[in-house]
């Protein structure tokens, strides 16, 4: 039997095939990451609101922008939008160390561990009571349990903070963005950017203070391995400096 050599496969066109694939991927994909600010839209309410709670002036940080792209922060005209973040930081920190009722900034409450635990127990008892009531509304039960969670979070936060009291900004304190129909998106985005910067700066300071590392580091590490400790750290920072933004729908 004649020994025949197996003919070699010609691989010369392999490169061409690979190039073709490569070019296909180059064309159909993008390198740039999508960067954005995520915001929540309030849930639609079908029932008309009856009793509207009055919000104290000191708790509002209003940023207004008109059709001409003029900026107004807390009823004062502002030329340079870069100054917004400083004003936001001032808004959060003015009364942080000591409450001064004469100024126009939100008050802080300081709550001790004992008070938190008392409140937590009360909330738990209430939640149970509601759950055991015949035909209680599911919404109310959920609401009560959310309160329990809130107090639990506060307890964890204070434990992590390691101080006798947990400082908390007034629950009404918020930042509202009021733009008009024709305000350029550029300015709207700039406002968002400034707010994000201010919140980052505040939380970063606290993170350096309490944990000795930057907020950015904690965030990145949490995104990588979702550790419980980092979650607690981030919860604490967001309790200290909550990002409460309200975006007001412009009138037609």
């Amino acid at each position: 039997m004649a020994k025949r050599e197996i003919p070699e496969i010609n691989a010369g066109s392999m490169a061409d095939i690979a190039f073709l694939l490569l070019i296909f991927f180059l064309v159909t994909t993008t390198m740039d990451k999508d960067q954005a600010y995520v915001r929540s839209i309030p849930k639609r309410i079908d029932v008309p609101i009856t009793d509207i709670v009055e919000v104290e002036k000191r708790n509002i940080f209003a940023i207004r922008a008109n059709f001409n792209n003029d900026l107004m922060v807390r009823k004062e005209l502002m030329q340079n939008p870069d100054d917004i973040s400083e004003r936001v930081i001032e808004f959060y920190t003015k009364n942080e160390k000591k409450n001064d009722p004469t100024n126009d900034f939100p008050m802080y409450s300081r709550i001790s561990m004992k008070e938190i635990e008392d409140n937590l127990r009360a909330a738990e008892a209430e939640a149970e009571a509601v759950e055991n009531t015949p035909n209680a509304m599911q919404d109310i039960i959920d609401f009560k349990y959310r309160q329990v969670d809130e107090w639990t979070n506060k307890r964890n936060a204070l434990k992590l903070l390691g101080k006798p009291e947990l400082p908390e900004i007034h629950f009404q304190a918020h930042i509202r963005i009021e733009v008009q129909q024709a305000t350029e998106y550029k300015l709207f985005a700039k406002i968002q950017s400034e707010l994000e910067e201010a919140i980052f700066e505040l939380r970063d300071r606290a993170a350096q203070d309490v944990f000795g590392e930057s907020y950015g580091t904690i965030q990145r590490r949490y995104n990588m391995d979702k550790a419980k400790l980092d979650k607690d750290k981030m919860d604490l920072l967001s309790i200290l400096y909550p990002a409460k933004f309200i975006e007001v729908t412009p009138k037609k």
Partner: peptide, 26 residues
């Protein structure tokens, strides 16, 4: 240069169908 009013129009529509998360790209 887009008018911000349109962003709020979009928000309104999303609210109607309970899609409650929006992101502004920059």
């Amino acid at each position: 240069g887009a008018p911000s009013g349109m962003i709020f129009d979009i928000r309104k529509e999303l609210q109607e169908i309970d899609a409650l998360k929006i992101a502004y790209a920059v």
